[in-house]
């Protein structure tokens, strides 16, 4: 008699799958808890934290948006190694509009979001046809190239950047805007991926020729997904420009491309919530380790590797599974 571990759906998960969930508080709580609790917890955490940690949470929210944007692109079959392109584009659009035209944040934020999305989509349009690694390579190189161009041509303040930009408001206002933005991005995109439109994007990733043979212009839909994802990234850049009251070449730096991917690796891809969770683990962690100086990178890397090797499915998938299923020993006869 051999034994193996088997996974079984928890009774409460099965019970709360249909409308009967509405007849019991316990079931309703079971459904609502994972959706509402993080929202409340994050809100309370930010409002009670010190100014320093409130700022860390703000930038965490923006990294989370970059990670969500990465996951949306990946769901549609586009692997991005250059989230910094979206981030930097949004940052510079907001910065220049504010510095040269004197527009306030409430105008630059939406303009940079739409404009950044549009510019990034147009720039990447010619390489949409490239598959897999070629698209990834182009996205990796573009932001690094733009950095060098700004340095060489000295436009938009050159290496000095533009400083003295308009702040967004008080620490709490900043935090609340960041929080609303990241939740809207998460729940908005999760909803979208659940519709037939999202199904189509996943289809493109799975088998683009099969989608084409259904009479669907895949490049048009890839461009749409690219616009949505890059607009979200551009928002994050524009937001941080006003938060730091400064924009400069570092917004195109590799950090903004690597951190989202690391977040996805830790959190788990394909759910959008995983990448966000990953950001909320990694960004504060890297702040905590800041005091350690040179050792920081080493410890950080060890934790990252331990996470991805220990939980290759990602923290989010692991937690979701524990929440909905339990394991037990089952006998199998061989």
């Amino acid at each position: 008699m051999a034994r193996r571990r088997e996974r079984v759906d928890r009774g409460i998960k099965v019970r709360s799958e249909d409308v009967y969930a509405l007849t019991s508080w316990r079931e309703m709580l079971y459904l609502a808890a994972p959706r509402v609790l993080p929202v409340v917890a994050l809100f309370v955490l930010g409002m009670t934290a010190s100014v320093y940690w409130e700022r860390v949470l703000v930038s965490t929210c923006m990294f989370a948006m970059l990670a969500i944007s990465w996951d949306v692109l990946n769901s549609a079959g586009m692997v991005s190694l250059g989230q910094a392109l979206f981030f930097g584009m949004g940052a510079y659009i907001a910065g220049t509009l504010n510095h040269y035209l004197g527009l306030g944040p409430w105008l630059t934020l939406p303009l940079a979001t739409l404009g950044g999305g549009l510019v990034c989509t147009l720039v990447l349009l010619p390489v949409l046809r490239l598959r897999g690694i070629y698209f990834a390579m182009v996205t990796l190189i573009l932001p690094l190239m733009i950095e060098r161009v700004i340095e060489a041509t000295k436009i938009f303040g050159g290496t000095e950047g533009l400083s003295g930009l308009t702040p967004l408001g008080s620490e709490h206002v900043q935090f609340l805007v960041a929080l609303v933005a990241v939740w809207v991005a998460l729940y908005g995109f999760r909803r979208m991926m659940g519709t037939d439109y999202g199904l189509l994007l996943k289809g493109i990733k799975d088998n683009d020729r099969a989608v084409m043979s259904a009479g669907i212009n895949i490049y048009w839909y890839k461009a749409q997904a690219l616009f949505l994802a890059s607009a979200v990234g551009a928002f994050a850049g524009a937001f941080m420009t006003h938060a730091y009251q400064f924009v400069g070449m570092p917004v195109f730096a590799l950090d903004y491309s690597i951190m989202p991917i690391a977040s996805v690796a830790v959190g788990g891809m394909g759910t959008l919530a995983g990448p966000m969770l990953g950001s909320f683990i990694l960004v504060p962690l890297s702040e905590l380790l800041r005091g350690l100086g040179g050792l920081r990178t080493v410890i950080y890397a060890v934790i990252l590797v331990a996470c991805t090797v220990g939980l290759p499915e990602g923290v989010f998938h692991y937690l979701a599974r524990k929440y909905t299923q339990f394991e037990r020993w089952a006998e199998v006869d061989k």
């Binding site: 439109y197 199904l199 289809g203 099969a210 669907i216």
Partner: peptide, 20 residues
Amino acid sequence: KPFYQLPAFKNLNVALYSPR
């Protein structure tokens, strides 16, 4: 060329999303 990650019937939802 199925959409491997999708359930069988959801495969058709993609085709049914065709502009046609």
